[in-house]
């Protein structure tokens, strides 16, 4: 039984112009110890998908799924109280805005201890010790003295580390990190990613990493799910998807990465012309067809979900490729235990 089973997840948001189909029929599974990267542009529905797992969607969003199970627990049937008990304890989330995701009115120590004290009924001292331990673990020096500080006294990088420590307080089985490095500068990004990967291996957690950065995916993830306009267009093990990208959108994404040694300075990177279509109102066919070089009449009708190799699926009428000449030589092995 997989830790997480998402089957045909759909999220609709009512707007003044009509129903916005933000996420359509997204399915994936995740085992303990795996890292799934959900990749896509802004507005592709990747963040909403992760929020839907935590049941933290905006209140007007409508979530539906054939099945939504965490460790066998049916999340759709679970009571509000059951979900509260899961959140922060067995599944935790790290948000992308370290500047605004911490409450300005309370100290770091208070906010860190909260989750543990809520779920484990421990005393202040234990919660405090655990907070210090985790702050040290995420690489914060003088951890004990940070506990009395307020969020505004910390830099963005430190706050993001605090957020990660906060997510780890109860040693969750699943941790969802929504663009955990976007707000940070490049050197800190690398540190935080390494940290996440190390912690994930140390604690044996499942990790969902939501990102628009394929470089991050290559370095951290074992599985990848590519989302476009609310749909999952291609998913599978990172080696398979990056080695034989079968959906034209995935290929377009990969072309947009500069590859050391192959991309010459000043040479334009591949871009995908056109715009993401509006998701308001009834949708049909492939939503990428208005930007796709291979678009045909058949793209306007139902698109089959096809298997490329076992575990590697894609949604396109084109035949899957077995190898791809342009495949970027990404440092995939970086993510293996050293």
């Amino acid at each position: 039984m997989p830790l997480l089973d998402v089957d045909h997840l759909t999220i609709d948001i009512p707007t003044e112009g009509g129903l916005l189909h933000a996420v359509n029929d997204v399915s994936f599974t995740l085992e303990r110890g795996e890292t799934l990267a959900i990749v896509g542009e802004s507005g592709s529905g990747k963040s909403l998908t992760s929020l839907a797992l935590m049941d933290l969607l905006p209140s007007k969003a409508i979530r539906r799924a054939r099945s939504l199970r965490f460790d066998g627990i049916d999340l759709q049937a679970a009571s509000e109280r059951d979900k509260e008990n899961l959140r922060g304890d067995r599944m935790a989330m790290i948000f992308q805005e370290p500047m605004t995701s911490l409450n300005p009115a309370y100290t770091i120590g208070d906010q860190l201890a909260e989750a543990l004290r809520r779920h484990r009924k421990v005393d202040r001292k234990t919660a405090r010790d655990r907070a210090v331990h985790l702050l040290e673990r995420v690489g914060i020096t003088a951890a004990a003295s940070r506990l009395g500080q307020y969020p505004h006294q910390l830099s963005g990088g430190l706050r993001q580390r605090v957020m990660i420590a906060m997510g780890l307080m109860c040693e969750p089985d699943l941790i969802i990190a929504d663009e955990p490095t976007t707000a940070l500068d490049v050197t800190i990004q690398a540190q935080i990613l390494k940290l996440l990967r190390d912690l994930q291996q140390e604690f044996g957690m499942a990790l969902i990493l939501v990102t628009h950065d394929l470089g991050v995916v290559a370095r951290v993830a074992t599985k990848v799910a590519v989302m476009y306009a609310g749909r999952l267009v291609e998913t599978g093990p990172v080696e398979a998807v990056f080695g034989a990208p079968s959906h034209p959108y995935t290929r377009g994404l990969l072309r947009a990465i500069p590859v050391p040694g192959r991309t010459r300075p000043g040479e334009p990177l591949g871009t995908i012309p056109g715009q993401v279509p509006s998701l308001v109102g009834p949708l049909s066919g492939c939503s990428f067809r208005n930007r796709c070089d291979h678009a045909q009449d058949a793209c306007a009708s139902e698109i089959p979900d096809r298997t490329v190799t076992p575990g590697h699926r894609m949604a396109c009428i084109l035949d899957p490729v077995q190898t791809w000449a342009e495949a970027p030589a990404l440092a995939l092995d970086d993510r293996r235990p050293q």
């Binding site: 628009h212 950065d213 394929l214 470089g215 509006s278």
Partner: peptide, 15 residues
Amino acid sequence: MTSVSASGAAPLDDV
């Protein structure tokens, strides 16, 4: 570090 150039997604409420 590389990133996808997210070419301006159309605003969803652009009625």
